[in-house]
Write a protein that binds this DNA or RNA. Sequence first.
DNA 1: CATGATTCAGTTGTGCGCAATTGAATTGTG
DNA 2: CACAATTCAATTGCGCACAACTGAATCATG
Lengths: 164, 164
Amino acid sequence: MTTEVPPAAAPDEEDWLRLDGQVCFSLHAASRAFNGVYRVLLKELGLTYPQYLVMLVLWEHGEQPVKRLGARLRLDSGTLSPLLKRLEAAGLVHRERSAHDERSVEVRLTDEGTALRARALQVPRRIMAATGFTLEEIAALRTTLNRLTTALDKAALETTPACD
Amino acid sequence: MTTEVPPAAAPDEEDWLRLDGQVCFSLHAASRAFNGVYRVLLKELGLTYPQYLVMLVLWEHGEQPVKRLGARLRLDSGTLSPLLKRLEAAGLVHRERSAHDERSVEVRLTDEGTALRARALQVPRRIMAATGFTLEEIAALRTTLNRLTTALDKAALETTPACD
DNA sequence: CATGATTCAGTTGTGCGCAATTGAATTGTG
DNA sequence: CACAATTCAATTGCGCACAACTGAATCATG
């Protein structure tokens, strides 16, 4: 009833929504800002940002089924299927039913897709320059974000438990 | 020509794509993981994550035109117009052409939209708990992400200059 | 006052992200 | 071998993000 509440150590209840807005919004904004810079750089490669992520995996690990691509990128077939079709239409990848398991679809780079890697090599350096961050800062941020992702994924599993 | 290049202080050219993949992917993944947890918590409020961001702004700053909402959230009308229509259909906001400037549309909370704030107050604390981060860590991450966003926005402007 | 530039919200089209479903192929069990 | 459960990719539906465009209202200039 009184207004003489001393400045508490913990934020006032009314402040929580503001604080929260800043936290979640910062991540949201950073993600889109990052996306924006990539969009510009990747336009000349004819790739979108998620398509670039797929190509990174293929360049690093080579041919693999859609399932494994999705596991590495945390994307399901609802996102990957149309994306891979567009990459195939662009002539960068080839999709083929596995001989061993007809349920599985193997994705592999075409010669053109493999060749694109050389042009992509300059992208990371330009992104680094755009951030103005040092290698150490980038590494630290990556570690923090990975820890955040792990914690959030764990929490999501505990919150969503489909009972049973 | 030779393969006897000594281990350089800077990463090998071949490593750049891998490093880059980790950096951009970490942010991408963290953003989606965050989104996933919010999705669960906000479902009981009947809001999506971007809709929640809009409500946060309205709760904090009150009635304002679409233009200002977009400036605060870095979203354009292509995103906001349909989003606000859905919030209006849900009975949470009201849209009305400004009397002073017929081009502008004022967005204000309905009583129902204002009342929803009370139920939203518990969301930030639950998100905090899900991250496992301390207030200090959250604040530090926010600062880093804001610095990153500012730098990336600046770089995007310099890279995209539509000449003029 | 007239006209040309600017400022708005809205629409369209493309692509990503995710939940839910479908249907075929495979595996496990009796 | 037969049948049920599981594992895949693909599809559908909805919402967000963004570029490009439309059209109305406003402002600036002469």
